[in-house]
Write a protein that binds this DNA or RNA. Structure first.
Lengths: 352, 352
DNA sequence: ACCATTTGCGGACAGGTGTCCGCGTCAAGC
DNA sequence: GCTTGACGCGGACACCTGTCCGCAAATGGT
């Protein structure tokens, strides 16, 4: 319904004033239409909208937001290691934010760069900052303090134990407890830990859960579980798991069950065991963590722990929205997500 | 109300004027320090920087950028289906952009939303827009035209054949030609295509390459290759490949080689063939596409095509930078990336 | 004590938008 | 023809920063 060919290439318009001149209205009138203010004739509104689609003009967001309108943007800082579960959380979160009208600014953490990333977020006047994954604890704590100083809501997903941070995290201790109970009921008494050192702050939760499950059965951690993490380099997880399992196979009495930090490591280990002639689960049991897609592509299907990403993000959104609505909480909000054990084919009754 | 405590909790400062008042300097002086202008005493500069780290003040990016400074931001629109290769491209691209001083605005395409996404990018006055993946061709073309109208550089990675778009894409026809030559040399003469319909615009390139390789050997596509895509739903790729392979196994004379659209489908097919008692590659050959990590986690290791993501992104950056430097090109720039065949263990001599 | 130089001050303007307000215009109803 | 609304105009101010410029104050040297 528009005009003829002469208007096929409408001019490039970069300000409301220019746009108003183009359609022969006052700048203020255009602004009123754009901001849905009352008291305008329908025909005028239509005229503006029509010219809008014709020229493709968009008001300068910087001027709009400078004027004090809420930026409706959220900063998201991602852990350096982009694993499938992390990316799935990001994608789910971004979708939900978008449906609530928020834009997300995404930055990937690089060593020592968190300060600059946060400054960028703050200069963009984001309404909240979310961290997803695991970071340097001291650095993260400093960032959280800065955010609080700026009265900007914060949220940490996954990383657990930062004093003043609002946190949503999987109960990894509980996960390991359930996994160990499962293996113990199958008769296993000797365990190989893959990627889970016995003494390391970052794996504390997992070890805690393992120890608790063993204790409940009257067993002692150092007596029946070993870890060779120090001996191998962790570069590519799959090969890491492969190398670790080979270490265990050199023992006089290898463990009957292997508990891995994640699915890739578990699969690498399964591969090494199978190459050594062990059937799974008849000869040895293997467990993963994360319940990634590959778990159902293996033979046998991998027993693992599901991170419950949907509920995690749902909870995260609740924590976030409550902060955006009611302001920052007096005490940090802590939410724990219950994991779900997924028993498949890679675990079975202990051989001896 | 805060002279004593003020050191411990510095006030939240939101403008240069406020900040200048806080440290007892003129606003213009602070601004000069922040923008590294000459003619200031070192002690003054230090004083400002010190207060800056103390209060954590950051100038409002919206005011700065409104002032006309280049926004140094690039809009990236991602295909809906977040596959590992897409995400790897995104991560690589973002890293490179950041190293050049550009910020990226990331949006995931949702059906029919491309218009809004583009408007958001334009309102943020991005300096270029990049599309990664495959989209609705008509919709994408319209967006490209809009970008050209706004004199904003564009770049499409992967999607091939949009008239006015600058494009960087893998030579998928060449990839299939090489793959087919490899299989033909191994003696294969009957092929099962998995996820690659014989007649479908989106797979045209692949079919074209397959047909060319067959023709060079004096063979005819419909006579020696079949596809059962119409019979199965493509939901989860792994199960899709599994189901497709089972269809082929019901034939009196199943093919000796299977060519899959991607690695997941290939792995699903391998699984189905192995369950049916076929050894790979002795009983049948299977090939994937993308060279994802899982290819080296399978037994046997999967023969596949590497997308050459590093060179792809490197080329993309070149195309982008040349546009940002010299303005938009007279004719669209087209760059093709040469794929690399990765021969592993899942392909072998044909049984008959 | 005087002068030259360095250094900081403060006013002014631009950049694009949102919003308020008083005023002019136009059409409809009597 | 007059009144009464409804509607659009255009001026003004605010948001925050970068930059220019004239001027005052502090500094340093002799």
């Amino acid at each position: 319904m528009s005009s003829s060919d002469s208007k096929k290439t409408p001019p490039r318009i970069t300000s409301t004033a220019e746009f108003a001149r183009y359609i022969g209205l006052a700048r203020t009138t255009v602004s009123r239409v754009l901001n849905r203010q009352p008291g305008l004739k329908q025909s005028t509104i239509d005229r503006v909208h029509h010219a809008l689609t014709e020229t493709g003009f968009t008001p300068n967001a910087y001027a709009t937001l400078l004027k004090g309108k809420s930026t409706s943007s959220i900063g998201i800082c991602l852990e350096n290691l982009l694993t499938p579960p992390i990316l799935l959380k990001l994608a789910t979160l971004q979708r939900q934010l978008r449906s609530q009208g928020y834009t997300s600014l995404i930055e990937v953490y690089a060593h020592g760069e968190s300060r600059n990333i946060l400054r960028h977020f703050l200069s963009m006047r984001v309404e909240a900052v979310i961290f997803i994954g695991h970071f340097d604890a001291g650095e993260l704590e400093t960032r959280i303090r800065e955010l609080i100083g700026h009265k900007t809501p914060n949220l940490v997903i996954d990383h657990h134990g930062i004093p003043l941070a609002n946190t949503v995290t999987l109960d990894r201790a509980q996960a390991m407890r359930e996994m160990m109970n499962h293996l113990l009921e199958l008769g296993h008494r000797s365990f190989g830990l893959l990627g889970i050192p016995l003494e390391h702050p970052s794996r504390f939760e997992r070890i805690h859960g393992i120890r608790a499950a063993l204790a409940a059965h009257g067993l002692d951690l150092p007596a029946c579980a070993r870890s060779f993490d120090a001996q191998c380099m962790r570069t590519h997880d799959f090969e890491f798991g492969h190398a670790l399992a080979r270490q265990f196979l050199e023992l006089k009495q290898p463990p009957t069950a292997y508990v891995a930090l994640n699915d890739e490591i578990a699969i690498g280990a399964m591969r090494a065991l199978q190459e050594a002639g062990l059937a799974i689960p008849a000869g040895a049991s293997v467990t993963g963590f994360n319940n990634q897609d590959i778990c159902t592509m293996m033979a046998p299907l991998l027993t693992t722990v599901d991170q419950q990403i949907e509920p995690t993000i749902k909870t995260a959104m609740q924590v976030l929205m409550s902060q955006l609505r009611d302001g920052m909480p007096a005490r940090p909000i802590l939410r724990t997500i219950k994991p779900e054990l997924v028993i498949r084919q890679s675990t079975g009754r202990a051989a001896r």
